[in-house]
Design a protein around this nucleic acid. Structure first.
Length: 258
DNA sequence: ATGGTTGTTGCACAA
């Protein structure tokens, strides 16, 4: 069995104790992190090494930052988009082969608002992610693209679709980009395993949204067909959103047959 | 509730 997880930790510095405790408890083989919000020289690789993990990090400091932590190897790492794709100014994607699976840890731009330039940046970023996959790997390989997509794939992934009218995360253009990734050969593994469940991975810190059940499912594990066929179990660990000083995101994990 | 909270080489901005 190989357990692959993703977690937007909203600052690894602020969250390190919670992350190491969660790793010890859950024992993922591969953990993708987003929003580490630190530079590479501040990344606490030794804390993960002490738990038996190799790790790689791609970060800049104040914002963004992605990592892959693995106890099944880290080979052929690629920071940013592959090949001659227009490089992104932010540290939002890190790719490596772990246990035979080509894994990308992605932090898709938020988009902010539909009339904000950041929204077009989000769409172009997703277009480049699709290009990246063609250059970096192949849909017939074992591929996982996972992280904070900042897109709720369908209305069931939103606590109240009317509350998000005219906002990002649910627009046809964003969902179209997800559909393009699916047509490349990737499957939303949590949704495939839990077709009817209204389950969320992110809740705003404000207004007691977590307590009130007002969340979105925007953290996704996308797998290629060979990975999907190996999936035996998956969940969103909403317990990790509880207690003192949580991230606003919960970890998502999938178990695959070896 | 055009509100609310959390994080950061913060005192504004991103989420």
């Amino acid at each position: 069995m190989i357990r692959v997880a993703t977690w937007n930790v909203n600052s690894l510095r602020a969250r390190l104790e919670r992350v190491t405790a969660w790793i010890s408890e859950v024992q993922p083989d591969v953990l993708c992190l987003q929003e580490t919000k630190m530079a590479d020289d501040a990344f606490p690789a030794l804390d993960f090494e002490a738990l038996g993990y190799e790790s790689i990090h791609y970060g800049q400091g104040r914002w963004n930052g992605v990592a892959i932590i693995s106890k099944v190897g880290i080979e052929n790492p690629v920071a940013n988009f592959a090949g001659d794709i227009e490089p992104d100014p932010d540290a939002r994607i890190l790719t490596a082969t772990c246990g035979g699976i080509r894994v990308s840890s992605v932090y898709v731009p938020n988009g902010r608002a539909i009339d904000d330039p950041h929204y077009e940046y989000k769409l172009s970023w997703l277009d480049r992610l699709r290009e990246h996959l063609d250059i970096d790997t192949d849909p017939s390989a074992d591929v996982i693209v996972t992280g904070d997509f900042n897109i709720a794939p369908a209305d069931i992934d939103v606590y109240d679709i009317n509350k998000l009218a005219m906002s990002t995360h649910i627009t046809p253009s964003e969902r179209e980009r997800l559909a393009v990734l699916e047509s490349w050969g990737l499957v939303d593994m949590i949704r495939a395993q839990h077709p009817e469940d209204k389950i969320f991975s992110w809740w705003d810190y404000r207004s007691g949204d977590f307590h009130m059940g007002r969340g979105l499912r925007i953290d996704l594990v996308l797998g290629s067909a060979s990975v999907v066929s190996r999936c035996r179990w998956s969940t969103i660990d909403r317990n990790a959103r509880k207690g003192p000083s949580p991230s606003d995101h919960a970890p998502v994990l999938v178990d695959l047959d070896s």
